[in-house]
Design a protein around this nucleic acid. Structure first.
Length: 421
DNA sequence: TCTGGGGTCCTAGGACCC
DNA sequence: TCTGGGGTCCTAGGACCC
């Protein structure tokens, strides 16, 4: 049987873990730049705050309804996530970390019945991390996601755990499950299916395989089989390397000048190259893109992107920066108000393969080692290259940031003192 | 004033090869 | 009458996920 463990309102729960006073209050967490709502507590949901709500439009409501607002604090969430995953590893030999707040477990040879075991998992995670989770258990991954949806939806009744372990229960659950909520059904597929009169997951399982294959590709077909109870997906090995590495951002303001945009692009490339070396990969291509503000129709709209090839597979910040600047020159257009830009590295290979080519100036490798070492020791972005603005680091609006409870020593001491008080 | 960011996989179609 | 056919690789774009 597969279990999926999913943290409830994860970012909000991370903030609450260190603020017990907020445990029953409405809380939301905002995206980068304090742009829109990306996590809501149950209380905030009840007050009608939708997912993705633009913060500036809801400012008044936040105040009126006394909703506590946080800027996103990714180092905190990342750290809390690893703690949750560590606890999970005690419960199953195989764990697939599926996202920052979810993991699949393969459950076999259990000491107790499966539902009791699922409750034990939930209880232990809360005990060790203060993070509430929901658990769905079923014979296939897609069905376990359905079970998890039920556990979340009927929290009182299920106590956060739902198991699909009989054919009768599978059918009953799928007949209730709205097709739009099924894992793997997005907007496009939902539209196509509802045009056909399909409203529930069960009706979807009754469609002919040829129709599903034709209209939803082999992915849709796999999903259909999985929902029928025939497992087509196994646990993924989550140690495998990424196939693309991206750094993309919206800006706090719009930029018009080439030099300003270039400085941002260089910083994005720098950050990508760092991530690249961390997973010991090299890249062959970089994609650079620019966008105007799509919400501002009074200004000229512009979007452009280009793929640039590296002279050889590389992990050197200097080579990558040169390449993306070349790409930027191709797509930069004057008199545009730029709001968003990004760099995506692709064609990733392991560094070992790269050494076969050995085209790179050998000095780069030792230089990169020193740069990474210094940034590691003295804090990210202390070492920069000449085309980066020395005054700034990331420049993001973060008006409601919580302290670095788990990763900064002074904060840890402070929290402990408060607890003692 | 003000609307996120980082990923995966699949398919169709073009370029190119023999 | 009749104007090949099979294959690979790459890329853009679309679908989806959290």
């Amino acid at each position: 049987m597969y279990a999926i463990i999913d943290c409830n309102s994860f970012y909000v729960s991370c903030e609450r873990a260190f603020r017990p006073d907020l445990r029953t209050k409405p809380v939301v967490v905002l995206s980068n730049n304090d742009g829109c709502v990306i996590s809501r507590s149950a209380e905030a949901k009840l007050l009608g705050i939708p997912m993705g709500a633009p913060a500036f439009k809801f400012k008044k409501i936040f105040k009126e309804k006394q909703i506590k607002v946080f800027s996103s604090n990714y180092s905190l969430y990342g750290d809390m996530s690893s703690r949750v995953m560590e606890v999970l590893k005690q419960f199953a030999p195989e764990v697939e970390v599926y996202s920052i707040d979810e993991a699949f477990l393969l459950l076999e040879n259990l000491p107790v019945d499966i539902e009791t075991y699922a409750h034990q998992i939930k209880k232990t995670i809360f005990q060790y991390t203060n993070i509430p989770v929901s658990v769905g258990v079923a014979p296939t991954k897609a069905l376990s996601k359905v079970a998890n949806h039920v556990a979340k939806k009927f929290q009182q009744k299920t106590k956060g755990v739902f198991v699909i372990d009989t054919e009768e229960r599978r059918v009953k659950t799928l007949k209730w499950m709205p097709i739009a909520e099924v894992w793997g059904i997005g907007r496009g597929h939902h539209k196509r299916l509802s045009d056909l009169g399909i409203g529930t997951a069960y009706e979807f399982t009754q469609l002919s395989e040829s129709w599903v294959k034709k209209n939803m590709s082999v992915i849709g077909l796999r999903l259909q089989k999985d929902l029928k109870g025939e497992a087509t997906m196994t646990l993924d090995d989550d140690t495998r390397d990424k196939k693309a590495i991206a750094t993309t951002r919206s800006f706090e303001y719009t930029y018009k000048e080439y030099e300003e945009v270039k400085e941002r692009i260089v910083t994005f490339a720098y950050s990508c190259a760092e991530k690249l070396r961390k997973q010991k990969s090299a890249c062959t291509h970089a994609y650079v893109f620019l966008r105007s503000n799509r919400h501002d129709s009074s200004k000229e709209q512009y979007r452009a992107g280009t793929m640039v090839a590296m002279p050889y597979p590389t992990d050197s910040t200097l080579v990558i920066v040169n390449a993306v600047v070349k790409g930027l020159k191709e797509i930069f257009k004057a008199n545009i108000h730029y709001k968003r830009a990004g760099v995506v590295l692709t064609g990733l290979t392991t560094t070992k393969q790269v050494q076969l080519f050995a085209n790179e100036d050998p000095k780069h490798e030792s230089l990169m080692k020193i740069m990474d070492g210094l940034n590691d020791k003295f804090g990210a972005h202390k070492i920069k290259i000449a085309s980066q603005d020395l005054e700034r680091t990331w420049k993001m609006r973060q008006e409601h940031l919580s302290p670095q409870y788990t990763t900064k020593l002074s904060e840890i001491i402070e929290v402990n003192c408060n607890e003692r008080e």
